Simulated scan of single mutants.
Amino acid sequence: MARAGASVLIVEAAHANAGASGQNAGSLHFQIERRFLEQGEAKAAEAAAITTLSRMAVDDWRGLEQALGADLHVHMHGGLMVAETAAEVALLERKAARERAAGLSAELVDGAELRRIAPYLSERVVAANHMADEGHADPRAVTPAFLAAARAAGATLAEQTRVTAIARAPGGFAVTLTGAGAGTVRAGQLLIAAGIWSAGVGALVNVHLPLFPVALQMNVTERVSPFLPHLIQHVGRRLSMKQAHAGNVLIGGGWPSRMAAAADGRFDLTRRPELLAPSLAGNLAVATAVVPHVAGLNLIRSWTGTTAITADQYPLVGAVPCVPGLFVAAGGSAFTLGPTFARLIAAQMGGGSAAAEAEAALAIAAPARFDHLNSFMGG
């Protein structure tokens, strides 16, 4: 938006990259995720629509380092979603067919070809969906690079600053800020991109943003020589694994941690979630079963973080119909699809001929699908 000539203020309650943007594992997972497949064939077929965004994201990530003029440690050497049983292989076959129909480079590999591509895999793995474009990047580099580019284009950052009130005003909104950047600012348009805090910010505009906090945990091993060039996922079990630029192996895949409870019975988003030992053990058991070499590595750190998901597990990205000028970008997949969301949202907010195309591309994530929740809200 700044490059397009807009006056942009970024309001950050803490400091940039303090939340899920910097705590995630940096996976670039363009295949249809296991969380959609485990809900049955109808959901898996419906989820194929998100491959349109994945196809765009492949191109966006391939050009991102050049666009931002920064080394983001982007490695797109391919990804494997593995299977251990005949039923899981059948699931992979159906998934790959949907992905190929959408223009993604998914192929089922097994036998000698699988061992050639990934000799580090356990003999328990009988097949895998291979997607040549998948990989990973460094979350600790990506957000600062975006921020630097935005500021170079004229955007202003207000850190340690909270939004405490939002009122409708002529031509848009009056936003009350407290903290380091205290004051009242006027804006023609607002974009809420606050992760787990997005629903609370939406309440200041008198709308429901149906986002639910989810606490997860991740693990990282010591640094070792390169042996794992691919992003590894599992079609039947929770697993995400890759070897980072520095040599550490990152192990996760959606294993839960425990959110703290507040006195009013709600979840306390201000406190870090508690690590769960069964999740740690379960995650590492799957990892070592799939890639036996991991069993000999030292685990040096585990951490927890909180993300937000919607009831249907698709992201929430686009215009909020009942409040003209209000936009949101939240609800999962926000590292993999984040650069694409940014580009499309900027086009929507900028108006003109590109806005309609961006809106169509974001249809599966559009807030309008939850408009019934706001039939008594807004205004």
Results as ranks from 00 to 15, higher is better:
E359H: 11
A106W: 07
F173P: 00
A86C: 11
A354W: 04
F146Q: 02
Q66R: 14
G378I: 04
G103V: 09
A199W: 05
L9G: 02
M349Q: 04
P256S: 05
A152S: 14
G318Y: 01
D268N: 14
Q160D: 15
L191C: 14
H29V: 02
A199F: 00
T178L: 09
G179Q: 10
V175H: 04
P144E: 01
A2M: 06
G19C: 10
A2G: 08
D71L: 01
V214D: 08
G188C: 09
R116T: 13
Q348G: 10
P144A: 03
S240P: 02
A295F: 06
K95T: 13
F267G: 02
W197D: 07
G202E: 07
E38M: 04
P213D: 01
G254L: 12
I345L: 15
D71C: 04
A363E: 15
E159F: 02
H230C: 03
T156C: 06
M349H: 05
L299K: 00
R301A: 13
I196T: 14
F30C: 06
A118S: 08
G265K: 07
D71T: 01
A106D: 03
I10W: 06
I251V: 15
E123R: 12
V8L: 01
E274W: 09
R369L: 03
L9W: 05
A48L: 04
Y314W: 06
I50T: 11
F370I: 09
L276N: 03
R162S: 15
I232L: 11
S27Q: 12
A319R: 10
S122I: 00
S375N: 07
T184M: 11
A180K: 13
A90E: 13
A368F: 06
H29E: 08
A287E: 00
V74E: 07
E357Q: 15
A4D: 13
E12Q: 14
A363N: 08
G26F: 01
R55W: 03
E113I: 01
R3K: 15
A83H: 10
L216V: 07
R258G: 12
A311H: 06
P229E: 09
G154E: 11
G282W: 05
R100S: 09
D59N: 11
Q39K: 15
S21G: 13
H293K: 14
S21N: 11
P315Q: 10
A127N: 10
V185F: 01
Q243I: 05
E134C: 08
L114R: 05
Q348A: 05
F370C: 12
A118K: 01
N374G: 12
D371T: 12
D59Y: 01
I192T: 00
G332N: 08
A2Y: 00
L80T: 05
A281F: 12
L64V: 11
A148P: 03
A244M: 12
V320P: 01
V320S: 09
A215V: 02
A57Y: 10
F30D: 08
L362Q: 03
L284V: 04
A330P: 03
S105D: 14
R140Q: 14
R343W: 03
F335M: 12
A308W: 06
L80C: 01
F335S: 00
A287L: 10
G26D: 03
A137Y: 06
